[in-house]
Structures are given as C-alpha cells and as structure tokens.
Design a protein around this nucleic acid. Structure first.
Lengths: 132, 132
DNA sequence: ATTGACTTTCGCCATTTGGCAAATTATAAT
DNA sequence: ATTATAATTTGCCAAATGGCGAAAGTCAAT
C-alpha cells in the first residue's frame, strides 16, 4: 500500500521512460545536464530544489508533489486526498493525467475506445497463434 | 501591492526578531548553525530546501509558504487565496496566526477584546492630555 | 571608562551540487 | 560481424552550502 522503499531517483526515471524521453531530451527541455539527470536517477546526486522545480513540469509532476516525494515538503494533508492522483503504483500516471486533461472529452473517450480495441485485438491474435 | 523588492533573508530576519529570537536560539531550535542563519538573513548564503524546511516551523511559516517565498515553488494558485494569510505587509503575521490558532476560541476572542479595550483606553487618554 | 555576558559576523574548511567533455554501453542497419 | 548512431555513464572541475571556532560588536551594570 505504501511505496516507501522506492527512491526519488527511481520515480524520476520511471516517469521519464514512461513518457518516454531520453536523458538528453529531458535535459534540453529542462536545462539540466543529462549527466546530472542520470546521476540523480541512480541516486548518486540529490537534486536541489532549483533542479527539482525545473524537471517537475516536463515529467508531469506538480511541483509540490515532487517536493513531497523528495522529502522537502511533508505530505500535504488536505489537498492530496481530495483531488490529486499522487504517485503510487496502481493509480493514474500523472503525466498521462496531465496530457489527457488538456484534451477534449471526446478525445479522451476515443483514447479509451482505441485502447479497448487494441486489447481485444491482441487477445484474439494470441488465441490464433498460441506459441510458447 | 507586491513585495518583490524584499528578499528572503530580510523576511526571515523580520520574522525572527519579531518573535523574538536570537540567532543562537533559532539555531538550537532548528539545528542550523547561527553563522549560517546569519549569512542567510543577510543574503550571503541561499538556504537549501533542507534548511528551509527546518526553519519554517520555528519561524511560524507553513513549509510551502516559505518555499514559495524562496522561489522554490510557484505561488500556490488555489490554496493561498482561500485560507492562508501568506506573508505580505498589512496582513496577519504568520507567527501570530500560528500561535493564536493553537488557542481555544474563547482565548482568541479574549485577545481581541483586550486589544479593543487597550485601544479605546489609549484613545481617551490621548483626548485628556492633548500634547503637541 | 571597563568589565562581563551576550549576539552577530568572519575565516576557514569539508562536503555536495551540477556542468562539460570524454569514454563506455546499447541499438540498429547493413 | 561491423560499423554507425544514439544513449548513458564516468572523470574532472568550479561554485555553493553549511558547520566550527575565533573575532568583533552591543549593551547593561558597575
């Protein structure tokens, strides 16, 4: 239920590859050097608030969300529960949430529709050619 | 209307002396060295998030409030307007706010009552002895 | 004026952050 | 397999943070 054993670096890397972005791409979006980003992700450097703020947006985090994950802010008591999908496995990825939120409702529905078509397609293909 | 010309250091010092606390006292409350606190206040050092977080409580700031003042967080769009008295001249001092908030309502009312009595007293005294 | 206690500032240092460029590793494409 | 290209990691460095102890101010009491 709790993701206490996952580090900030891992979270950041997961987000980045999920989007997906390379270190260099994220670097130029954020004006943070790729080497630094890399070291952050594998826990060799601990990002300062300035850096954290730079990367929050492009990674799809709310600033305070990332600050909380970094242990800079204590968990936001009220706001978190009510509206934001804060990072944890099983919940909506914040980047996806952000992007979809910018789309019209019909588009959001269409995305879901396409997803369900793909899922059923892959299922029937798997049935036709059961290898393994 | 905007306090853009006042620096974080000045804000911190104002808070500290208003409470009032010496650098050493604040230092031992926060586990931050007095020399560092002093340099922060006069703008020679820029506090990290870790330090900022340590000093927020004892100075009567909400963590995110101080982060915002430091430029680590962009101004909180929704929360600020609705409930918090964020730092600016003419508004309720956050330390006062914090202390009063810890008191029962009757006490808070009593404080206001006493204040109004003192004000009317000083007014009538001023009338009796009008000196240039 | 001078002593004494307290408060603030300064000098110095270890540690950390974060960037640049080179080296290494992974990924294709032939 | 080999070469080309992109992605990540490493080595090294400058700059900044933050602590400790000494020096310099402040201020009251004698």
């Amino acid at each position: 239920m709790n993701n206490r054993e996952i580090s900030l670096g891992e979270i950041i890397r997961q987000q980045r590859v999920t989007i997906p972005l390379t270190l260099q791409e994220l670097a130029q979006k954020t004006s943070v050097s790729p080497s630094h980003l890399g070291r952050m992700e594998r826990g060799e450097r601990f990002p300062s608030a300035r850096i954290l703020r730079k990367i929050a947006g492009p990674l799809g985090f709310e600033e305070d969300e990332l600050f909380t994950l970094a242990g800079y802010l204590s968990p936001h008591p009220s706001t978190v529960a009510e509206s934001r999908p804060s990072y944890s496995s099983g919940r909506l990825d914040p980047y996806v949430s952000k992007v979809l939120a910018n789309e019209p409702i019909e588009v959001q529905h269409a995305v879901i529709g396409i997803l369900s078509i793909l899922k059923s397609l892959s299922k029937s293909i798997a049935k036709e050619t059961p290898q393994g």
